[in-house]
Amino acid sequence: MTMATNAPAVIATDLVKSFGDVRALDRVSLEVQAGTVLGLLGPNGAGKTTAVNVLTTLLRADSGHAEVAGIDVLRHPGAVRRRIGLAGQYPAVDESLTGIENLTLVGRLNHLPTAQCRSRAAELLEQFGLAEAGRRFAKTYSGGMRRRLDLAAALVARPSVLFLDEPTTGLDPRSRIDLWKVIEDLVTQGTTVLLTTQYLEEADRLADRISVVDGGQVIAEGSPSELKSRMGGTLVEVRLDEQSQARRVAELLTDAGDGRVSSQGTLVRVPASNGTAVLAEVVRRLDAQNLSPRGLQLREPSLDDVFLALTDRFAEDEQIRSTG
């Protein structure tokens, strides 16, 4: 068990990393409190993997400062490697070895005693549903099995800080939920996790805090509920058959909710922080006009909304900046 400390387990300050003309990281700052999960979200090419690679010592930042488990990443990379586990975006297993051999090798290279290498390998294969496949060569594994083996390899030395780059990409729903449980257990035991993901449901469920990156910069930061509340509260969504109809309905409902009504394509959104009252009003007005929408629902804003709104706005700003 680790002591609950308040010191951040990961601190990154103004990290910059360029590949030629591409600024993959453009003054990125992050912080992960010990024993918590930070979700790193962002569209393709945002710089998530680059950030993970810098923090796990695979890449050297051009400038900036980073500490993992209290150790300076640039000055003492070797000491950092003793405390971290990494499952990269692409599984890094040796295909010509069996599952057991892969994990035992990682154990040996982590300098665990031989007996522990074996017992730990068996334990992890069991935990990741690979006990049956442990004696088979990894080249005979399916994509999802390889990924699970790679995740197991990241856990061999019981690292205090775990970096997972899109850990559930390519996993079936069952394995995904299993992995979520594994991560939650590790966090209860005091492990700190930094994970990137394209699945916002995953971030919502696992992450204590979320940093959204785009174009190498952190464009938003907060807990999942903080980010969602930025989108305003509950919404009534009306879906219609045609765009022209949607525009008419948006006008009709202008003052039905308690905020600005918006329409996008065939969809009309009415802010409804006092929920069902607004829903009833919307139904009454549509009914009075003999309009029957294709769909009607009351819903909480999701992280998807947040993500799309944030990254859209960012893209627009970029465009304005580059044209103006």
Partner: peptide, 20 residues
Amino acid sequence: DDLQKGFINRLRSLPMARSA
């Protein structure tokens, strides 16, 4: 081959001696 398959990245994240 190890580099292409990503295995070198696994090794580079471990506390092993690089000369090994």
